[in-house]
Computed example of a mutant assay.
Amino acid sequence: MIHILESSEDALVAYLKELRSMTQQGEPKVLEARVLLMSHDIPERLFEAWSFRSIVASSREQLDSSLSQKKAATGCLSQLLGLAVHLRKTPKANLKNAMDLLSERVPELLPSEDLLTLLLQHETYLSVEDFLSLYYSELSFVEDSELVWPLPSHVFPYNN
Rank of each mutant, 00 (worst) to 15 (best):
118 L>I: 00
99 M>N: 15
111 P>F: 02
100 D>P: 05
98 A>M: 06
101 L>H: 04
110 L>I: 12
113 E>W: 13
119 L>Q: 11
108 E>R: 10
115 L>M: 06
104 E>P: 03
107 P>S: 11
118 L>V: 01
93 A>I: 13
119 L>K: 11
99 M>I: 15
102 L>H: 04
107 P>E: 10
98 A>C: 11
113 E>V: 10
105 R>A: 12
107 P>W: 05
110 L>Q: 08
107 P>N: 10
115 L>W: 03
109 L>M: 06
116 L>E: 01
101 L>C: 05
119 L>H: 11
100 D>V: 07
114 D>V: 08
116 L>P: 03
108 E>I: 08
108 E>H: 14
101 L>M: 06
105 R>D: 07
108 E>N: 13
123 E>T: 00
97 N>Y: 10
109 L>F: 02
111 P>E: 01
92 K>L: 14
92 K>R: 15
103 S>R: 04
99 M>R: 15
115 L>C: 04
123 E>V: 03
113 E>Q: 14
106 V>C: 12
110 L>S: 07
118 L>P: 00
107 P>H: 10
92 K>Y: 13
112 S>W: 05
101 L>D: 03
111 P>A: 03
92 K>F: 09
115 L>P: 00
112 S>D: 13
109 L>K: 05
92 K>H: 12
92 K>D: 13
122 H>Q: 05
92 K>T: 13
112 S>T: 01
95 L>I: 15
108 E>Y: 12
99 M>K: 15
121 Q>L: 10
119 L>S: 11
123 E>W: 00
118 L>E: 03
102 L>N: 05
121 Q>I: 05
93 A>L: 13
108 E>D: 14
92 K>V: 14
119 L>P: 06
121 Q>K: 08
100 D>T: 08
110 L>T: 04
93 A>T: 14
94 N>R: 13
93 A>W: 12
111 P>R: 00
107 P>R: 12
103 S>G: 04
112 S>Y: 03
123 E>M: 01
101 L>I: 04
123 E>F: 04
100 D>Y: 07
117 T>G: 12
120 L>W: 02
108 E>K: 15
106 V>H: 07
119 L>T: 09
116 L>D: 02
108 E>W: 10
123 E>D: 00
100 D>A: 13
107 P>L: 08
98 A>P: 02
98 A>Y: 03
95 L>H: 14
107 P>G: 09
100 D>C: 10
109 L>R: 01
121 Q>A: 12
112 S>I: 01
101 L>N: 04
96 K>P: 06
101 L>Y: 06
116 L>W: 01
112 S>C: 09
119 L>D: 12
114 D>C: 13
106 V>P: 00
114 D>Y: 11
102 L>W: 03
116 L>K: 04
114 D>T: 14
